[in-house]
Computed example of a mutant assay.
Amino acid sequence: MRAQTPSDALRDAAAARTRRDQLTVQAAAAGELVARREREAADLQQRVQGEATDVAKLERLSPAQLWASLRGDLDDRLAVERAEHLAAQQAAAGGQERLAAAQHDLDRLTAAIVDLGDVDAAFAAALAARAEQVRGGGSAASEELIAIDTQLGALAGEGIEISEAQLALAVTQQALGLAQQALDSAGGWSTYDTFFGGGMIADLMKHDRISRSAQAFAAVNRSLEHLATELADLGAAPVEAVQISDSLAVFDVLFDNIFSDWMVRERIANAAHEANLLGERLALLDADLVGRHDGLIERRGWLIERREELLLA
């Protein structure tokens, strides 16, 4: 293995500095997500406490229990309140999982920044060494050569970020495809149950498929959040337009409190529509990232060609 030249060292130092700056932007975005997830988790836990209070009012002697007894619907009211309490607990558990995932992402980014060390000092030292080399060689284009080496290093760091964003996008698209398949299955069973009097077996199958699709869309959300972090430092308008909308953000608990077969069908249809729109946005993002990568390769080729011209002059 050949020894690293001052030119190589400068490019590596520039790449590390660019990487640090990009990770810092990503960490800021991840920190905002953690704060948002903390507020969400607190709100969901408060909902659990409220639902538990409603159940307790009906389980012990209270005005609510007496009134329900007089109306003759105590058992039904209690069943509904217990179901809502269970749904709130499930939602709160999902909120804690989302918070843990966001915190893990922030911790990963923070550790990556620490691992890079003092990139500014390393860059300054590499720059000084490269300047001494080219000036000692008497090159008339020494300053341009230093600038080219620095730009090549920055492009290397940018290339890493684009590749990581493309990987995160591919994972998200795969997760979305699986979720759409699960949703199609749920929609089929819902239609059968609604229009053909499916019976108990069909009802069980429908709710099993609904549960699977909800879990699948929860995985989509986690992938979207990771993708949003990876895109935070790229900044082009098509990238910034890819957001986790409010409707997509509640896919985790999309199918709580189902009151009728018609409501189930409507929610499945709405979810399918949102999933299709998301797929279209991800396809646009894919094209944008490919364009960015191609542009980076083109700039890198031009810089290398210019560097060779200067060295051979």
Score class of each variant (00 low, 15 high):
residue 268 I to L: 01
residue 269 A to M: 01
residue 269 A to I: 00
residue 269 A to F: 07
residue 269 A to L: 00
residue 269 A to T: 09
residue 269 A to C: 00
residue 270 N to L: 11
residue 270 N to K: 13
residue 270 N to I: 04
residue 270 N to P: 02
residue 270 N to D: 15
residue 271 A to Y: 02
residue 271 A to L: 03
residue 271 A to V: 01
residue 272 A to W: 06
residue 273 H to D: 10
residue 273 H to A: 14
residue 273 H to C: 07
residue 273 H to E: 11
residue 274 E to K: 02
residue 274 E to D: 13
residue 274 E to N: 09
residue 275 A to V: 03
residue 276 N to A: 15
residue 277 L to K: 13
residue 277 L to V: 04
residue 278 L to T: 08
residue 278 L to K: 03
residue 278 L to F: 04
residue 278 L to Q: 02
residue 280 E to Y: 11
residue 280 E to C: 09
residue 280 E to H: 12
residue 280 E to N: 12
residue 281 R to F: 09
residue 281 R to V: 07
residue 281 R to I: 07
residue 282 L to D: 04
residue 282 L to F: 09
residue 283 A to P: 00
residue 283 A to F: 10
residue 284 L to E: 06
residue 284 L to I: 06
residue 284 L to C: 00
residue 284 L to A: 10
residue 284 L to H: 07
residue 284 L to K: 10
residue 285 L to W: 08
residue 285 L to F: 11
residue 285 L to N: 02
residue 286 D to W: 02
residue 286 D to N: 13
residue 286 D to A: 12
residue 286 D to Q: 13
residue 287 A to K: 10
residue 287 A to H: 04
residue 287 A to R: 07
residue 288 D to I: 02
residue 288 D to T: 11
residue 288 D to M: 09
residue 289 L to E: 05
residue 290 V to N: 12
residue 290 V to P: 07
residue 291 G to M: 04
residue 291 G to H: 05
residue 291 G to D: 09
residue 291 G to A: 11
residue 291 G to E: 08
residue 292 R to V: 09
residue 292 R to Y: 03
residue 293 H to D: 14
residue 293 H to M: 12
residue 293 H to V: 06
residue 294 D to K: 08
residue 295 G to Y: 07
residue 295 G to Q: 08
residue 296 L to M: 05
residue 296 L to I: 01
residue 296 L to Q: 05
residue 297 I to G: 10
residue 297 I to W: 08
residue 297 I to M: 11
residue 298 E to N: 13
residue 299 R to V: 09
residue 300 R to H: 10
residue 301 G to Q: 15
residue 301 G to H: 12
residue 301 G to D: 15
residue 301 G to M: 14
residue 302 W to K: 15
residue 302 W to Y: 09
residue 303 L to C: 04
residue 303 L to K: 08
residue 303 L to T: 06
residue 303 L to M: 05
residue 303 L to D: 01
residue 304 I to K: 01
residue 304 I to L: 03
residue 304 I to A: 03
residue 304 I to H: 04
residue 305 E to D: 13
residue 306 R to E: 03
residue 306 R to G: 03
residue 306 R to N: 03
residue 306 R to K: 11
residue 307 R to Q: 12
residue 308 E to S: 14
residue 308 E to Y: 13
residue 308 E to W: 12
